[in-house]
Design a protein around this nucleic acid. Structure first.
Length: 489
RNA sequence: GCCCCCAUCGUCUAGAGGCCUAGGACGCCACCCUUUCAAGGUGGAGAUCAGGGGUUCGAAUCCCCUUGGGGGCACCA
């Protein structure tokens, strides 16, 4: 079995492309097949090497690897079926279109876009299917020669036979189309660049692809491909059309309505293993109630035959949940390592490691870390700017209660030396202080929490104090008291 | 407009004729734990299986129709 993914570098890696790539990858691995990456860059106007890099890097990031094709953006090919970039295969396409021309399966067409548009309008007015009227197929030799002599550029059209096309789709079963409804479509543009439907067929043959697994949006294009395959005398691969990933309104997932670029999710701090797990379950399930799977396990369990037919909405809540599951499953050391990019360089590795237990179970995405523990490395003024004096008030209480708690804290913290400034001791002393003041523990802690972290929601208070250290903690409590006073004045 | 595909809680899904008075997960709501928030635990609301016809002793599961949704019909991929 040989399968492939064929992204077009006309944009960053799309969630849908990633999922299709994943399904291909899993199928190849599960069946012991070969996986090929082909870059479909015939749209020279929109393709860039930067997009190619985004696609390849993100695929690697997800843990998807391939046996043939470029491994690095702009890099050399690996594999015996290259080149793997369509822009480097132009000669082959030219030869194959020449064969089609010669056999009469394709013909030159000189119609201008304006002429085509006029015909289309007429057909619409008559409620006919809009398709090419074959004017150029029926040209006399003299007319043809005249156009050619004129030097007018021409496209090459494939002559579609009026016949039913039937195939057994790997996920949908028997599907039948009537090619009599199809018009003769263009396979080579008038500037000589071959078009998608044509190159995809040429390449799949050249790369000996046996199973074409792609999005359902290609289902109705398949009869075109099969017609082309037959005209060229190629081997017909099996086709499998997987369901689409949908926007919240059930339309095909799009940039307009959803965040579709993998890079964006990566930058928010989703883990690749969570993304893979999530994507795999959008349209597939093992048929059991298990739902947390590593890539390895997916390779083992994935079966194309269990892929669904209906589309699935991309549900961020579910992704978030899974991401949390994977984050919590990481060791402190592993999580600290992953967090490195989200935390300032000034924060030392061993400090970061100590911070990890404070946030591990409240992290949804890695990118949430700064808002949770930023108070540790941000300067006092910055943290103070995060809150207004009213936030210092305990739930049931106002400025007097806040002041009492903060002054109590100032005294308690001041009594401890650096060696005793640990979460355990801190908690014990603060509880005693709360008792002395006849305050509920929670009411006593709230003003301190806000003074220290700048927020009403934070990691556990005493561990936070310990991380901050005696001097900075005292300074922040003092700042808070001052802030309270300013309002009173 | 034409062609094709699809249809189980809000969402992802289990379900391949009797195990289904439809199960799980996310989300939501309560309660417990608790210094906040999470995490965790317990419980709950939530689907007449889109609707209607068949087939069958028996249908979420098979067939047909309707409805709804989606995709495709480019000198984009």
């Amino acid at each position: 079995m040989r399968v492939r993914m064929a992204p077009s570098p006309t944009g960053p890696l799309h969630i849908g492309t990633a999922r299709t790539s994943l399904y291909n990858y899993l199928t190849a691995r599960h069946e012991g097949g070969t996986y090929v990456l082909r870059i479909e860059d015939t749209d020279t106007a929109r393709s860039t090497v930067d997009f190619e890099r985004d696609i390849i890097d993100n695929l690697h990031w997800l843990g998807i690897s391939w046996d043939e094709g470029p491994q690095v953006a702009g890099g050399d090919d690996v594999g015996a079926h290259g080149p793997y970039r369509q822009s480097q295969r132009l000669e082959r396409y030219r030869e194959e279109s020449a064969r089609l021309l010669e056999s009469g399966a394709a013909y030159h067409c000189w119609c201008t876009p304006e002429e085509l548009e006029a015909v289309r309008k007429e057909q619409e007015a008559r409620k006919e299917a809009p398709r090419y009227n074959r004017r150029c197929l029926n040209l006399s030799d003299e007319e043809r020669a005249a156009f050619a002599a004129e030097g007018r550029p021409s496209v090459i059209r494939f002559r579609v036979e009026a016949e039913p096309i039937r195939f057994d789709d790997l996920v949908r079963g028997e599907v039948e189309f009537d090619n009599a409804l199809l018009g003769d479509f263009v396979i080579v543009r008038n500037d000589g660049m071959p078009l998608y439907h044509f190159v995809v067929v040429v390449d799949d043959e050249a790369m000996e692809i046996t199973h074409v697994i792609r999005g359902e949006d290609h289902l109705s294009n398949t009869p075109k491909h099969i017609a082309l395959i037959r005209a060229l005398g190629y081997h017909e691969p099996r086709f499998g059309h997987i369901p689409l990933i949908l926007n919240a309104d059930r339309s095909k997932m799009s940039k307009r309505k959803s965040q579709t670029s993998m890079t964006a999710y990566r930058e928010e701090g989703y883990l690749p293993e969570a993304m893979v797990n999530f994507l795999a379950f959008l349209g597939w399930s093992p048929g059991t109630e298990e739902e947390v799977f590593t890539l390895d396990e997916l390779e083992d369990r994935f079966e194309l035959s269990k892929v669904h037919k209906g589309g699935a909405i991309f549900d961020r809540d579910r992704l978030d949940h899974l991401n949390g599951v994977y984050i919590r499953a990481l060791s402190d050391e592993q999580l600290a390592l992953r967090l490195r990019g989200w935390v300032p360089d000034a924060v030392r590795d061993d400090d970061l490691l100590h911070l990890v237990p404070l946030i591990k179970e409240r992290l949804v995405k890695l990118g949430d870390a700064p808002s949770l523990i930023g108070f540790v490395w941000e300067p006092d003024e910055v943290v103070a700017s995060w809150y207004s004096p009213e936030l210092l008030h305990p739930k049931k209480g106002g400025p007097p209660e806040a002041r009492a708690a903060l002054e109590g804290a100032l005294r308690v913290l001041g009594e401890l030396d650096d060696a005793d400034f640990s979460a355990d001791v801190l908690e014990q002393r603060c509880r005693e202080a709360a008792d002395d003041l006849a305050m509920k523990a929670g009411d006593f802690f709230t003003p301190i929490r806000v003074a220290i972290t700048g927020r009403t929601v934070s990691p556990p208070l005493f561990a936070s104090l310990e991380m901050l250290g005696r001097d900075r903690s005292l300074a922040r409590v003092a700042d808070a008291i001052e802030k309270l006073a300013e309002v009173a004045a």
